[in-house]
Every structure is written in C-alpha cells, then in structure tokens.
C-alpha cells in the first residue's frame, strides 16, 4: 500500500480542531471566583488596556512588554491598589507617559486589574518545582 501523507495531515488537523474547541468551551477553575458582572466589566477594562497599548511595556502573567513591571497583582500589592494605579496612569513616570483617560475608562481599567488579580498570582516566588520539571503555583 502506498504511503498517503494527506491522511496524516487530516488526522492532525482533526486533533487540532478538537483540542481548540475544548479550550474554547471549558474555562479553567481559576475563573470560579468571579461573578458574571465582574467578568463583563473586566472585559471592558481589558479593552482600555489595549486601546492605550499598556501591553507594549507591561505584562500580565509575565506575558507582554519588558520595559515596565508585571501588573497582574498591582491591585492587591502592599502599598498599591486603586488610588496608586490611578495616580500612576494619570501622571506617568520618567519612562511611562501620562495618560488622559476618561472617568469611565479608568474605572473599567480598575475593574480589569481587580478581576485579573483574583485569578491568581504572577509572582514567580510563589511557585514550586515538581520532580518532573513542571511548576505549580502555591496559591496567592
């Protein structure tokens, strides 16, 4: 029998589609702490984050730009929180430009930070290494 690469191709494509849809359909348990409203508001805030391109310098869960710090947990970190974030965004720093956000936008942004903070911690010190090389979070 002749070797038909196209069958292999179709097989892998099918696996890929099944895997993709399983990811689209089953949210992880880390989202369980959020209500539907919180999720909707956070999604709005995420759009503000994108609109002002915060990701060019900042990371969420260590993914994003490299010029500024990770912001996953800035909402709950000691000495930070809502007022601090607001002040930072409005006045900027040496490196970071000052942004002129509307009141609605800034509130949405805060909702996003609040929600993403609830899903877990991006602090790498709060992970441990398993014998098989995988890392697991110790929680917040």
């Amino acid at each position: 029998m002749q070797f038909k690469p196209i069958y292999f191709f179709i097989l892998i494509c099918t696996g890929f589609l099944v895997y993709s849809f399983s990811i689209y359909m089953y949210p992880p348990t880390s989202m369980n702490g959020l209500t539907n409203d919180e999720m909707t508001n956070a999604a709005e805030g995420k759009m503000v984050f994108q609109k002002y391109n915060c990701q060019s310098c900042h990371q969420i869960y260590n993914l994003g730009g490299y010029l500024g710090p990770d912001l996953t947990n800035c909402y709950s970190q000691e000495g930070k929180g809502e007022l601090y974030i607001k002040a930072m965004v409005q006045s900027g720093t040496n490196q970071m430009p000052a942004f002129r956000l509307s009141e609605i936008e800034i509130n949405a942004l805060l909702q996003f930070f609040k929600a993403i903070d609830k899903t877990g911690s991006s602090d790498l010190r709060k992970f441990h290494i398993e014998p098989n090389g995988m890392i697991e979070s110790n929680g917040k």
């Binding site: 689209y24 949210p27 959020l34 539907n36 999720m39 999604a43 995420k46 969420i60 993914l63």
Partner: peptide
C-alpha cells in the same frame, strides 16, 4: 482569525481562556 476571537464578548469575558488563546 483565531487571534481575533476576543472581538466576541463570549471570549473576551473569560480572562484566562482569552490569554490562553492569545498565546495558543
């Protein structure tokens, strides 16, 4: 195309799945 799924609120709302899809 998959990289624009976030345009739909269903995907955008699921913050962690959304990030997963972005890096997928």
């Amino acid at each position: 195309a998959e990289g624009y799924l976030w345009l739909f609120p269903y995907f955008r709302k699921e913050l962690i799945t959304d990030l997963t899809i972005q890096w997928k």
